[in-house]
């Protein structure tokens, strides 16, 4: 499980970085989204992974905190997702404005010669 998650994060981050360095605005925004997925998964993983265990508390018995993952990163990642989503939406609007004003979808607002 660890190897699946960590390689998933790695692939997301690598493809995100590659796309951010591309010249078209659509590629950049996809790259930023992929990078933020990688970051969010990474935050999620800092709460440690737990396999083959029930995700809910069993109220009948005394609760052992060690049997569950740390819930704090899950709440952190929620905040991070919300903020990331909002800023990505804002960024999309800016890129549309750039496309409208410059007539080109190059990140510099003009086609390279």
């Amino acid at each position: 499980m660890e190897i699946v998650l960590s390689s998933g994060i790695g692939i997301f981050a690598a493809s995100g970085l590659w796309l951010i360095l591309r010249p078209r605005t659509f590629q950049v925004i996809m790259g930023l989204s992929l990078l933020s997925y990688a970051v969010n998964l990474f935050i999620f993983a800092t709460g440690r992974l737990k396999l083959d265990a029930a995700p809910i508390l069993d109220t009948g018995k005394a609760i052992d905190p060690a049997a569950y993952t740390d819930p704090v990163p899950q709440s952190l990642v929620l905040t991070a997702i919300v903020i990331g989503f909002a800023t990505t939406a804002l960024f999309l609007v800016i890129l549309l404005a750039l496309r409208g004003l410059s007539g080109s979808d190059h990140v510099n607002g003009r086609e390279p010669y």
């Binding site: 951010i20 950049v28 970051v39 969010n40 800023t87 960024f91 800016i94 750039l98 510099n108």
Partner: peptide, 29 residues
């Protein structure tokens, strides 16, 4: 155009910086 173009670059740079910030906070936690 000048402002929107500068804005697109500024936002990109800062979104990447925010990702770094989150990674850092996650590592520390």
């Amino acid at each position: 155009l000048a402002r929107v173009r500068a804005g697109a670059h500024y936002v990109t740079v800062n979104l990447v910086a925010s990702s770094c910030f989150l990674l850092g906070a996650a590592c520390i936690y």
